[in-house]
Amino acid sequence: GAKVLACPLNSCPVAPASRSSQEMWESFSQCFTPAVKEVVEFAKSIPGFQTLTQQDQVMLLKSGTFQVLMVRFCSLFDPKERTVTFLNGQTYSLASLRALGMGVLLDAMFDFSEKLGSLGLEPDEMALFMAVVLVSADRCGIVDVGAVEQLQENLIKALRTLITSRRPDDTTLFPKLLLRLPDLRTLNNQHSDKLLAFRIDP
């Protein structure tokens, strides 16, 4: 009868059966709200982001926040040890989380983390990649598509310049990085489905 919300941002993957679903969600919400606020602050720091309309800023953040968090926290997934470390410092084996019914989504997250980690990005490259991720989010609901496309183009150019100038002999890194964008969209959809399923039928 225990309820499961095995997100690394949650305080604990399993809540006692005595706790109501609403209580569990509210507790989880308190855990992920600071991380979401940090993504908003990060977005504000992207040159040009705040020149977009407020509505377009909201739309990009709605579809891109989880993707940015996935990149930011991919180091919580240890592909060698097959463990996930929650933000509270507690580490869980993939096997134990899989037993809680989190297999498919976690497998995809491990796969993504391993691929991104293998690229060995520096912190400033990772930050610029997160900016590209956010501005490459779903165009659904965007009013001024031209302004978003221009910002995206500028950010991709900046990322390419940074990476190719730092590693002139490696021409594969930049395209490999862009290939992670569709992975993130797929993960975003899987993650939304999982959370919505919990909200409907925990």
Partner: peptide, 27 residues
Amino acid sequence: FSDPASNLGLEDIIRKALMGNLEDRPE
């Protein structure tokens, strides 16, 4: 469920975080 971010309460948090900035912005 075409708008998961709204259904999960994400939009509300995002709007409030953005509005905080707008309130600080000079006229």
